[in-house]
Design a protein around this nucleic acid. Structure first.
Lengths: 195, 195
DNA sequence: TCCGGTTGCATACCCTCGGTATGGAAGTGA
DNA sequence: TCACTTCCATACCGAGGGTATGCAACCGGA
């Protein structure tokens, strides 16, 4: 191995750590995956994990959670940009979110373990920087396109819609044929968005 | 202590166990409360806990979860029966649910830890026997009162509304003055129910 | 190029906690 | 009274999160 800079060493190990954590947390859940197992899967030991994530296991989980949010927000922004009008953008975003929910790892991390491990408050705070920000902006656009003016209750409404979408995602995953049920759920979501 | 029958001994200890578990799980969450602590708070030891709940800690949590559901379902039924018409019953039920969400222990057990500990599937299965059953019946009544006929999508719609209500409950708790925000959230929930 | 200081990480250890095994006391039916 | 079951405490085990220590790899200046 050639001489590597500290930033390189640190960067690769943290990346491997987060990747391994995403894999194990996503597969069996937060509680079932031990830190030793995550570190071993990353090719290091627990010492390295605590060096880069002094706050411990929850900090590692938080990094994984943020990673999922980043990918989701990117996909949402892309879907919204491709839509012809604000209302279509909303529906496309809902569909994109539900498609992400088809991934068991996404559901485990974002919908199931997230609130329990990080607390509801922190989870929503993080999401306000990613998916929820996109959703809120899309709803504002839709309201303006309908000739209305965004009011203070819009934030609450945005959040309720988000809750419904999360539930829809879980419902979708429970179905025996998710692909077939997706249009139905998207339709119901669209009905809710007509408020 | 006079001579007590086995059923009495068993009944009192399980009741104390569940009561202590409800207290500790509700206060600090499932992971933070150890089984030893719960048993000690109930005045017994871990041996008694495993005797009455062979499946261990999760079984005890499940009992606490079901207890909360029973109380909630009772309150919902009561609120619905007192309402003049199906639509008012729906709104009253939503309000009742949100009032329950003002209790931090309820939020921890039912909304936060429940899905993570028991799994989303089992949680919703239990809730279908309590709160979700009441909600669904109320929505059917409301649809019929509007001259419509309940269709297959009603189950999905019921679930989406429930998701929105859960999110509303958390949102409500986060507010600095929950009592003042309650009407606003109830109004938004009513808007969603108008679908 | 050398060399104190810092960073990256492994090894060894402690402690809490969920779960199991065992023994004995309290109740039960005959 | 006496076998038998139920109830529950005590003692123990292993896994896992977190900490302490020590060494090797980098860094920055003389």
């Amino acid at each position: 191995m050639v001489r590597r800079t500290q930033a390189e060493r640190s960067g690769t190990t943290t990346a491997q750590l987060v990747a391994a954590a995403e894999e194990l947390f996503g597969r069996n859940g937060y509680a079932a995956a031990s830190l030793d197992a995550v570190a071993a899967a990353a090719g290091v030991t627990k010492g390295a994990a605590y060096h880069h994530f002094p706050a411990g296991k929850t900090a590692l989980f938080r990094a994984v959670f943020v990673r999922h949010q980043e990918r989701l927000a990117d996909a949402l922004a892309e879907a919204g940009a491709a839509a012809p009008d604000p209302r279509a953008a909303l529906l496309a975003g809902a569909r994109t979110f539900l498609e992400h929910c088809l991934d068991p790892a996404f559901r485990r991390i974002v919908l199931l373990d997230g609130p329990s491990v990080l607390g509801w408050e922190e989870v929503r705070e993080i999401e306000y920087g990613y998916a929820l920000r996109v959703l809120r902006a899309a709803m504002e656009d839709a309201v303006r396109a309908d000739g209305g003016t965004p009011d203070t209750a819009l934030t609450a409404r945005c959040q309720l819609v988000f809750g419904a979408l999360c539930e829809a995602g879980m419902l979708l995953a429970r179905a025996e044929d998710p692909e077939a049920v997706l249009p139905v759920v998207v339709g119901e979501a669209g009905r809710l968005l007509g408020a």
